[in-house]
Simulated scan of single mutants.
Amino acid sequence: MRTQFVTDDQGEKVVVILSIKEYSKLMEDLEELEDIKLYNAAKKGESEFIDADQAFREIEQKRGQK
């Protein structure tokens, strides 16, 4: 990864410049990590299994409340 920096008057790095390709890759990786984090959190929680028909009814009911 080739990065460029913009510095302030004191020489502190304040901005990173990346190519669009590198930025896109970082964003894809971040989304994947967020999905993994949510998956791991869901596995730790209590699981309540419901019938698919009931799940669809609840989804449609919540949609109607918006």
Rank of each mutant, 00 (worst) to 15 (best):
R2S: 15
Q4Y: 14
Q4A: 10
Q4M: 11
Q4P: 10
V6T: 07
V6D: 14
V6I: 11
T7K: 02
D8P: 02
D8E: 03
D8M: 02
D9V: 13
D9H: 12
Q10T: 09
Q10A: 05
E12A: 06
E12Q: 07
E12N: 04
K13M: 01
V14Y: 00
V14F: 00
V16C: 04
V16A: 07
I17L: 06
I17A: 00
L18E: 04
S19N: 00
S19H: 04
K21P: 02
K21Y: 05
E22C: 02
E22W: 01
E22S: 07
S24H: 01
K25G: 05
K25Y: 03
K25M: 05
L26G: 08
M27Q: 11
E28Q: 09
E28H: 04
L30D: 13
E31S: 10
E31M: 04
E34D: 11
D35L: 05
I36V: 05
L38P: 00
L38V: 09
Y39W: 10
Y39A: 12
A42C: 04
A42L: 12
A42E: 11
K43E: 15
K43C: 13
K44A: 14
K44W: 08
G45I: 06
G45F: 09
E46L: 13
E46V: 09
S47H: 13
S47A: 08
S47W: 13
S47G: 06
E48F: 05
F49Q: 11
I50C: 01
I50T: 03
D51P: 03
D51R: 10
A52C: 12
D53A: 06
D53M: 03
Q54W: 07
Q54Y: 12
Q54H: 11
A55G: 03
A55W: 12
F56C: 04
F56S: 10
R57F: 15
I59F: 08
I59Q: 08
I59A: 12
E60L: 05
E60C: 01
E60D: 00
Q61R: 15
Q61M: 14
K62I: 06
Q65F: 02
Q65A: 05
Q65S: 08
K66A: 05
